[in-house]
Design a protein around this nucleic acid. Structure first.
Length: 429
RNA sequence: GGUGGGGUGGCAGAGUGGCCUAAUGCGGCAGUCUUGAAAACUGCAGUUGGCGCAAGUCAACCGAGGGUUCGAAUCCCUCCCCCACCGCCA
């Protein structure tokens, strides 16, 4: 949610932002919001004056003669009807304003590259050597199935497509990388959180997933609850509705959680293997801090660096892209994706997504703080980034670290989580 | 699931139809005193919106939404949440 004042002062910039995000259909929400705002502001002074008159009546009533009292009461009746009608209109307008304002996307920062979709994201950094194989490397699904580490068929039978069952060492590796990720973040001062996975609509709305993301979300209709697609939702909502004090900030949280995504509209895309699945585990980092653009940008770089540290510790080649306007979501002001090299796909593929929102989420969540210097109450800034998502990260781990015989080398950083083992699997024929 | 008690400003906590324009305390800010700090004292101060260059001024807000009333923090209804006890249960 943007401040209505931003729309008033700079409607063209807000509209240009929506167009840069390729959300042209939401441009009209700006004009609608402004029209409603104008009507509200035109009627409020009159309404306030009437309410003022009504309110003052109680003080004078006692001094009136019976006859005067009669006329005064008649006037009060009129006032009541008049105020009632105006309040009805005000209520409708405020609801509509809220609705339109909720549709207005956050304005992308100037540094966000122009572009229509993820093919036009701009690489800003590349790290690590892409491995060249002197044997024919196996794709992770072939390798894992041959090792008896994964079963897609039985998973599909019991749960439908885009599901998987991990077994044995791969189940352990999955857990190892997640545990490593949590510990790394705890070392870096983040507070571990184990949040609810089923949340109310307000949390989905507050983080900007609703309206718009309903189709991607599993919903428990009879309880009115939604399964989270990322721990960003409950963790960013953690202090929703609260008034924090500046000395409580920044809040840095790390949450490991299961994540659920319907992947509607992706039929036929990435159907093979562990890349695009309905349920996965993710370690997510969330930062909540004061309303300071420069600090937000610094946090943004920090949370990217945290993810990089993890990938480097796992000896995985990756690159960072600045996500272009057309690939940016509604609530983000700027986003970096980290893409890790996946030999079977012969490409760098998204494994991390680091976003900064400024106060867009905080406004929707009513997440505020009181500045130290006694200044005006402010909305917080929020950011988040993946630390690791598995099983997706198992793809590069298996494929980049495979041996010619189908065994897999464990990166040194993960060995403590696997009983010190350096290699997983048995030699394949 | 059942019964009962609650939800008031940053926090605690008074307030059962009209001087509530929400007491009081804590915390916060400014000042006096002090080498500095603490204590003490004095003053300022809720949030949101409208109008205004500003001082200011008007309105809304007492968990959410409806209702009764000339008038609601206060009475009624629905919902949400918290606490206590009982039942069931991982």
């Amino acid at each position: 949610m943007l401040d209505i004042k931003v729309l008033r002062d700079n409607p063209d910039a807000v509209k240009a932002g929506a167009i840069k995000k390729r959300l042209a259909d939401r441009v009209q929400a700006v004009d609608r919001a402004l029209a409603i705002d104008a009507e509200l502001r035109a009627m409020i002074p009159g309404l306030d004056a009437l309410r003022s008159e009504q309110k003052n009546f109680g003080k004078t009533m006692g001094k009136l003669s019976p006859a005067e009292r009669e006329t005064a009461l008649a006037r009060q009746k009129d006032l009541k009807a008049e105020i009632g009608a105006l309040e009805e209109r005000e209520k409708t307008l405020r609801a509509e304003l809220e609705q339109q304002l909720a549709l207005v996307p956050n304005v992308p920062d100037p540094e966000v590259p122009d572009g229509k979709d993820d093919t036009e994201n701009v690489e800003v950094k590349r790290h690590g050597q892409v491995r060249t194989f002197d044997f024919t490397p196996r794709a992770h699904y072939d390798l894992a199935e041959a090792q008896g580490w994964v079963d897609f068929l039985r998973a599909a039978n019991m749960a439908g497509s885009r599901n998987y069952i991990l077994f044995g060492d791969l189940a352990l590796l999955h857990d190892a990388v997640l545990r490593f990720a949590v510990e790394l973040m705890v070392q870096r001062g983040f507070v571990p959180v184990d949040p609810p996975l089923l949340v109310r609509d307000q949390a989905m709305f507050g983080t900007g997933f609703f309206p718009g993301g309903e189709e991607q979300t599993y919903r428990c209709e009879r309880d009115g609850l939604n399964l989270i697609g990322t721990a960003e939702v409950p963790v960013t909502s953690l202090h929703g509705g609260e008034m924090l004090t500046e000395d409580q900030l920044p809040k840095k949280y790390v949450a490991r959680s299961a994540c659920f995504r319907r992947e509607a509209g992706t039929h036929g895309k990435d159907t093979r293997g562990l890349y695009r699945v309905h349920q996965f585990q993710k370690v997510e980092q969330v930062v909540i801090d004061v309303a300071d653009q420069e600090r937000s940008i610094r946090h943004h770089h920090d949370i990217v660096a945290n993810a990089e540290a993890l990938l480097q510790a796992c000896d995985l080649p990756y690159r960072i892209v600045a996500v272009c306007g057309g690939d940016l979501g509604v609530p983000q002001a700027m986003k970096y994706d980290i893409e890790t090299w996946m030999p079977s796909r012969n490409a760098y593929c998204e494994t991390h997504s680091a976003s900064r929102f400024y106060d867009y989420q905080a406004r929707r969540l009513d997440l505020r703080y009181r500045p130290k210097d006694g200044g005006k109450v402010q909305f917080c800034h929020t950011l988040n980034n993946t630390v690791i998502a598995s099983p997706r990260v198992l793809i590069p781990l298996l494929e980049n670290h495979q041996l010619p015989d189908g065994r897999v080398v464990v990166p040194a950083a993960l060995r403590p989580y696997l009983g010190g083992r350096e290699v997983l699997g048995k030699p394949l024929g």
